[in-house]
Nucleic acid binder design. Structure first.
Length: 565
RNA sequence: AGGGGCGUCGUCAAGCGGUAAGACACAGGUUUUUGGUGCCUGCAUGCGUAGGUUCGAAUCCUACCGCCCCUGCCA
């Protein structure tokens, strides 16, 4: 099989054959610790660490913490936890841009000495005015021609805390007439008397992204600096700093398109808004595309990595169908999840010809995809719960489940036939009375008689009550962030994104599962114990994803589908 | 006086002058003690449009068209 390289792998392979970077590949994942990681970051993590792995290189974890007013240790910790959980190990290579503040300051001094940077006293508003527009060139700042000595003096005093926030900045002296606005004398240092989560009060000036990022790359010996498309316009600036200064290496920036996923939002700002406005329960709400949310939802690292592998890496803006993510988790969990029986909306079944008080232990397969996962025993008795959806008094032709007169199989147990029903005053069926065929123990009949369907069930007497949270897509709009109809994304939350079922009944074996391992509730979907909200006497399970369901599809009850264009 | 990118199936995405991979989705069939899984089949005479070069063009050239990003002391 021919291995397909994406365009970044190809570039690196070319660099290697050309003998560039001494044959080394060194990447980095550079999050700003101002929010939680989401699946878009997972794409970047898989890419950067994957590149290092593929080309026998190294990938650093570097926190881009140059703006202390937005950054917190809480985020640093969660980011580390998430990267580790995803399955990547940065070893000793954990760095912070703030580790380089002194060296970056020295670089700034060098720039000033070379006449390539100056202290500017324009106000923020004036700087914007002088910058010009997309159509018009900018004008030179009146402070542009200050002497090196004066710049040195002023910048030193900026550092020592002599000036107020916003009163002065250090700017690179490049070209106020450039078509690329990033080159119109960009600000490289600003004054901010703000405590930094790592350096404390040591600094009151902080470098800007464009200055800090590329030079941090250079300091770390990064060979390939992978970032997203919106930074393409910054590349000339990235290169400019590295050209002006003596750096250990000359990294190259390569941009790729960030991930967009249908039926969700990905920007930190929007995720933050959902959390702040309590539209979700927190950063780890299982409906969010955050890694902590996906983890709580029951997504596995392997499924997410596999998803990132399948979506590819390219430069065109795209919208990946969330169905692909769902496919990835089903594929993984089908192999590894142990099967259990759980009844979410219980309907009582009484087997009239089954002995009162008798309990049998029936053998069940834990995972038909993996014999090594063994078998277990499931208690069976005269009174059972089955799913309300599995019974219909007046059933259409294609309904294969329980209906008066029809015989069905109870999984691993017996064939039963519905004889009659009992209803309350409203006419709602409260109990279904059946008879069973003792000869069908285990679920097959000696005479080879076929049944149309197999139902899951739980014996009333041994059932464990539980809460189950049925999660679905957070938004009903496939592209909520686009706000095409003028409606804000926050108004497009899918009313069925969370459905809490309080009165679920589980088979007893489910009492001993942990949140480490997702399970399948047969015929329903994949679920995981919610560690945060479960109590000993009342476990809580979260639905990761439903099983594919052709019956539901055909019978109409469908959730929102992508609109046809 | 504008600059930088990108257009290949419903959605992603290969393709690098030799006659349109693959995945998801979708539609059929088959197996099945999960209406699950597995297996089989179908799904771009077409590559934003129009010209041109060539024996041959999604790939090269030209011109159009469309979409995205850029005027933070954010990253």
């Amino acid at each position: 099989m021919i291995e397909r390289l994406n365009f970044i792998q190809q570039r690196i392979a070319d660099d290697l054959t050309a003998g560039r970077n001494c044959g080394l590949v060194h990447t980095r994942f550079p999050p700003e610790p101002n929010g939680y990681l989401h699946i878009g970051h997972a794409k970047s993590i898989c890419l950067n660490f994957g590149l290092a792995r593929k080309f026998s290189g190294v990938c650093n974890l570097r926190f881009d913490d140059t703006n202390p007013s937005k950054e917190e240790v809480e985020y640093v910790d969660s980011i580390k936890e998430d990267v580790k959980w995803l399955g990547f190990d940065w070893g000793e290579n954990e760095f912070f841009a703030s580790d380089y503040f002194s060296r970056l300051y020295d670089y700034a001094i060098q720039l000033i000495e070379a006449g390539k940077a100056y202290v500017c006293d324009l106000t923020p508003v004036e700087i914007r005015e002088y910058r010009g527009s997309l159509q018009e060139p900018g004008r030179n700042s009146p402070y542009r021609e200050r002497s090196v000595a004066e710049n040195l003096d002023l910048f030193t005093r900026m550092r020592s805390g002599e000036f107020a926030d916003g009163s002065r900045v250090l700017r690179a002296k490049i070209d106020m007439a450039s078509g690329n606005i990033n080159l119109r004398d960009p600000v490289i240092y600003r004054i901010a008397h703000v405590k930094h989560h790592r350096t404390g009060d040591k600094w009151c000036i902080y470098p800007m992204y464009d200055f800090a990022h590329g030079l941090s790359d250079a300091i770390e010996g990064i060979t390939h600096s992978i970032c997203t498309l919106e930074f393409q316009d910054h590349r000339p600036l990235y290169d400019w700093f590295i050209e002006q200064l003596e750096t250990p290496v000359k990294p190259q920036q390569i941009e790729f398109a960030r991930l967009n996923l249908s039926f969700t939002v990905m920007s930190k700002r929007k995720l933050m808004q959902l959390v702040d406005e309590n539209l979700v329960s927190g950063w780890n709400d299982p409906r969010l595309p955050t890694l902590s949310g996906l983890r709580r939802r029951g997504y596995t690292p392997a499924a997410i990595r596999n998803f990132c592998e399948r979506i590819g890496v390219a430069k065109r803006n795209s919208m990946v169908d969330v169905a692909l993510l769902e496919h990835a988790i089903r594929e993984d969990l089908n192999q590894r999840a142990a099967r259990y029986m759980a009844v979410l909306r219980p309907l009582k079944v009484v087997i009239e010809n089954y002995p009162e008080g008798r309990i049998e232990e029936l053998e069940a397969v834990n995972n038909p995809e993996d014999e090594s996962m063994g078998r277990r025993r499931v208690p069976f008795a005269r009174e059972l719960y089955v799913e309300q959806d599995d019974f219909m008094e007046d059933a259409p032709k294609k309904f294969f489940r329980l209906t008066p007169g029809r015989e069905v199989r109870l999984r691993y147990a017996y064939y039963i036939r519905c004889q009659r029903v009992e209803k309350d005053e409203q006419g709602v069926v409260t109990t279904v009375y059946c008879t069973y065929d003792p000869a069908t123990r285990g679920g097959s009949s000696p005479d080879g008689r076929k049944v149309k369907s197999t139902l899951h069930w739980v014996a009333v007497k041994t059932a464990i009550p539980a809460e189950v949270r049925l999660y679905d897509r957070l938004f009903s709009d496939p592209e909520p962030a686009a706000e095409k109809d003028g409606e804000p994304f926050s108004k497009k939350i899918n009313p069925d994104s969370l459905n809490v079922l309080e009165n679920c009944q589980l088979e007893p074996a489910l009492a001993s599962v942990s949140a480490k391992q997702a399970v399948q509730f047969e015929r329903l979907g994949y679920f995981i114990l919610d560690e945060q909200d479960s109590r000993r006497d009342k476990p809580v399970f979260n639905r990761t994803v439903t099983l594919r369901d052709n019956w539901a599809k055909k019978s109409g009850a469908r959730r929102a589908q992508p609109e046809k264009k």
